[in-house]
């Protein structure tokens, strides 16, 4: 005779009353949320709070003592022309990279989506810069854009144009970095747009064709662009945040020069904090950086999401 094995307890566990049951559920919920909460605090909230605290001190890296100096660091920031210069450079960089990287990403996605063959090949080749190490890729750009033997200048010469001093011309250097920034971000944006395009119902395009949309431009205006609204908003904010964080290319290629023309916010933070060891002052810059990033994120979730989400 075979044995019947039951996994159920012979008598159901007794639950004293409703309140105890609810309390037990609450405890279980807290327990399950704890690991994530601890990690969030240790890796994100805690360090941010510590930076905010440091920004009110004169702490220097390696020094054991620190004094609270109130808003002195912020007052110094407001007077510091180098800070304003780097903030302006960062703004210019963002203003060039965001439209460039978003529109090229959208264009690449639309072109790739519209063809059936080699789609995978194009997708991978556009995505490559995202997967690569930016420091290594920046070195490659340095060679390509070298003033005397770089490929770019050889090509310009071949076309009968004059050579360009991509990194040594103060008017040129920031734009060159922005160009590299766009190249770096296009692939990522393209992947996001491709995902967005794949969610557009096919029958909307068919309805558009019957309603009288003729050609790609009509279809784009009536269906694609509005349906991509949420993705576009997300891509713009993400690109802005990533452009705002530009650092590697500056550190590898220009070190803020020539003549501070490519000095950006994070690079200033880096030099103040890790070259001059003025940690308190660098923390104040970090707080400014944090404020801008948080504002951009809030803008996305609070304002734009509501305007481009049609389900509400």
């Amino acid at each position: 005779m075979s044995q019947v094995v039951s996994t159920l307890p012979s008598t159901p566990r007794r639950v004293p009353d409703r309140m105890a049951l609810l309390a037990e559920r609450r405890r279980a919920g807290l327990l399950l949320a704890t690991p994530a909460a601890v990690l969030l605090f240790c890796l994100s909230l805690g360090p941010s709070a510590w930076v905010i605290v440091l920004s009110f001190t004169d702490y220097r890296l390696g020094v054991t003592a620190l004094n609270f100096v109130g808003l002195d660091n912020y007052a110094e920031l407001a007077r510091d022309p180098h800070f304003w210069n780097s903030l302006r450079n960062t703004a210019v960089y963002v203003a060039v990279v965001v439209p460039g990287a978003v529109l090229s990403g959208l264009g690449a996605a639309l072109l790739i989506e519209s063809r059936s063959r080699l789609r995978q090949f194009y997708r991978v080749s556009y995505f490559m810069p995202v997967a690569g190490t930016l420091v290594a890729l920046a070195t490659a750009w340095e060679v390509i854009l070298h003033p005397s033997f770089g490929l770019a200048n050889l090509m310009l010469e071949g076309l009968g144009l004059s050579r360009m001093r991509f990194f040594s011309d103060p008017d040129m250097a920031l734009l060159t970095l922005a160009g590299i920034g766009i190249w770096e971000l296009v692939g990522f944006n393209m992947v996001l747009f491709l995902a967005g395009l794949s969610t557009i119902p096919r029958d909307l395009y068919e309805a558009a064709a019957i309603d009288g949309a003729q050609g790609g431009l009509d279809r784009f205006r009536l269906v694609t662009w509005p349906m991509l609204g949420p993705v576009t908003m997300f891509v713009i904010v993400l690109t802005a945040i990533r452009a705002f964080r530009v650092f590697e290319t500056v550190a590898v290629l220009t070190q803020g020069g020539p003549n501070r023309s490519t000095d950006v916010l994070l690079y200033t933070l880096f030099t103040e904090g890790f070259r001059y060891f003025r940690t308190g002052y660098a923390s104040a810059i970090a707080v400014v950086f944090l404020l801008v990033t948080v504002t951009l994120t809030l803008l996305q979730t609070r304002v734009f999401d509501r305007r481009v989400n049609y389900d509400r």
């Binding site: 119902p201 029958d203 909307l204 068919e206 309805a207 064709a209 019957i210 309603d211 009288g212 949309a213 003729q214 009536l222 269906v223 509005p226 349906m227 609204g229 049609y310 389900d311």
Partner: peptide, 17 residues
């Protein structure tokens, strides 16, 4: 567009925006 036909789709295919 030029066939002069109108179509009603199963999922209606209304423009959500």
């Amino acid at each position: 567009r030029d066939r002069g036909v109108a179509m009603v789709f199963q999922n209606y295919a209304l423009y959500p925006h």
